[in-house]
Design a protein around this nucleic acid. Structure first.
Length: 433
DNA sequence: TCTGGGGTCCTAGGACCC
DNA sequence: TCTGGGGTCCTAGGACCC
């Protein structure tokens, strides 16, 4: 190791480094649609959507017609008669998204992946190698474009929140650096909806108070804001304004809950429908937990009714659950109670289950039975029978693929359903055991 | 024109404990 | 008997994110 003069004198001179906007937010543009245009040159510069019954993503050309994610395919076609709808190459999205993240990691190990197509980076330690944050942002964009063929927008600022706002403003295919000290000027005339955490409901509330821009929001008195946005709002504003952001880059984050849901169209919740649907959902969720060697202590079901209201019911148990059958039974019991509390026209449109309080523990597979139905507690023979069934199913799947065995999904209408590959894209990694 | 799927976090009230 | 405060966990709902 070479000794510098500083080390020889036994102290390290403090480095008076000016604060730099070293947090980057990199966000691929119209990711799914761009991948399709990359794979099939015939789709380039044309309005396309990925999906089927429902639009999962739209190219910028399609967005110009008002097509957006979440919209039904029929409506999208009416808005944009020339629209091409493609089913989607979900495995390619995962593969290309991973390659982009690899490019980011070549600049710094401090990469926090937020989703399939976006990530935060802290490049404070990379400046001496690659230049200024702006240089790095530009290099990222050039490499992702050159090596993978996708457009990516990058924002650089002093905090995660502000970097994210910057990348959104930079879209499509751009870069924005917000110099330290110029945060307020950058934000002043931007709409409040660009703030992280300000969605339709909050935006409407703020508009009612005459607040439309972030500048107007910043100028509003604190107590007034707290009434409008809740107590957490102050911290958000401070982070946005470029003050110290408590949220650091988190590498390798793990999910705190696991869930699955199924849209049903409008259906009457017959015991058969409820049982088969929760069988399918519990199978997905419990299978993921067992694969990760964890279980969960809190089970929540959600039911959405035809009028779009929804109710949730949850229950916590002492011993974590990871058996498909046990989870399915809990779901049915909770859902039964929820529906009894909510008489309406009776039709439902969605069932969902989520498991939280995850316990990374292989013995979670030996969870105790629940007894939601009044203390019925089968003995250990039942328990081990369930464990054996799960083990067998997991083993068959490991050898022959997920579709080889398991719950039929006949209850779910085929046309509205999205492919399992799409579901997998959105899944966060569970805690390792 | 009613809307796919997987997540996170906040709030508020209540139970319970010390 | 009534008074007080703090902490933790649970539940339900809501808003928001990609």
């Amino acid at each position: 190791m070479a000794l510098s003069g500083e080390h020889m004198f036994g102290y390290r001179r403090p480095v008076p480094r000016a604060p730099a906007p070293t947090i980057l937010h990199a966000d691929l543009d119209a990711f799914y649609a761009s991948v399709e245009q990359l794979l099939d040159p015939g789709l380039r510069r044309r309005p396309i959507a990925v999906g089927g019954g429902v639009v999962l993503a739209a190219s910028y050309e399609a967005r110009a017609f008002g097509v957006s994610a979440g919209m039904s395919g029929g409506r999208a076609r009416r808005l944009c008669p020339g629209l091409t709808i493609v089913p989607g190459h979900f495995e390619e999205y995962q593969r290309l998204g991973d390659r982009v993240i690899d490019v980011l990691r070549s600049f710094t190990p401090l990469v926090e992946r937020v989703s399939i197509d976006e990530a935060f980076l802290d490049v404070a330690g990379a400046l001496h190698l690659f230049g200024s944050p702006g240089d790095i942002a530009t290099a990222v964009r050039r490499r992702v474009h050159g090596e993978i063929g996708l457009a990516i927008s990058v924002g650089a600022a002093r905090t995660k929140h502000l970097a994210k706002v910057a990348s959104q403003v930079a879209k499509p295919d751009g870069v924005i650096v917000v110099p330290v000290g110029e945060e307020a000027a950058f934000l002043e005339h931007l709409p409040v909806g660009l703030m992280w955490g300000v969605g339709p409901a909050t935006r409407a509330r703020l508009a009612g108070a005459g607040i439309h821009s972030i500048g107007e929001l910043a100028a509003a008195p604190g107590p007034h804001l707290e009434r409008l946005l809740g107590r957490a709002a102050g911290g958000k504003l401070a982070a946005l304004a470029g003050d110290v952001d408590p949220r650091r880059i988190e590498v390798g984050g793990r999910a705190r809950s696991v869930g699955a849901q199924a849209a049903l169209g409008r259906r009457f919740p017959t015991p058969e429908l409820v049982r088969t649907t929760f069988g399918y959902l519990a199978d997905r969720v419990a299978g993921r937990m067992r694969a990760a060697g964890c279980g969960g202590r809190t089970v929540t079901v959600r039911i959405r009714f035809a009028d779009f209201r929804s109710v949730t019911r949850s229950a916590s148990v002492r011993h974590a659950v990871s058996s498909t059958l046990t989870l399915a039974e809990m779901c049915c019991a909770l859902a039964g109670g929820a529906m009894a509390d909510h008489p309406g026209d009776g039709q439902i449109t969605l069932l969902a289950v989520s498991v939280a309080n995850l316990v990374p523990d292989a013995t979670a597979q030996l969870e105790l039975p629940l007894g939601l139905d009044g203390g019925h507690r089968p003995g250990s023979a039942h328990r081990s029978a369930r464990w054996s069934v799960d083990r067998s199913v997991d083993a068959v799947r490991a050898r022959f693929g997920h579709g080889a065995v398991g719950y039929a999904t006949v209850a779910l209408s085929d046309d509205g359903r999205v492919p399992d590959a799409f579901r997998r894209l959105a899944e966060r990694r569970l805690p390792d055991s």
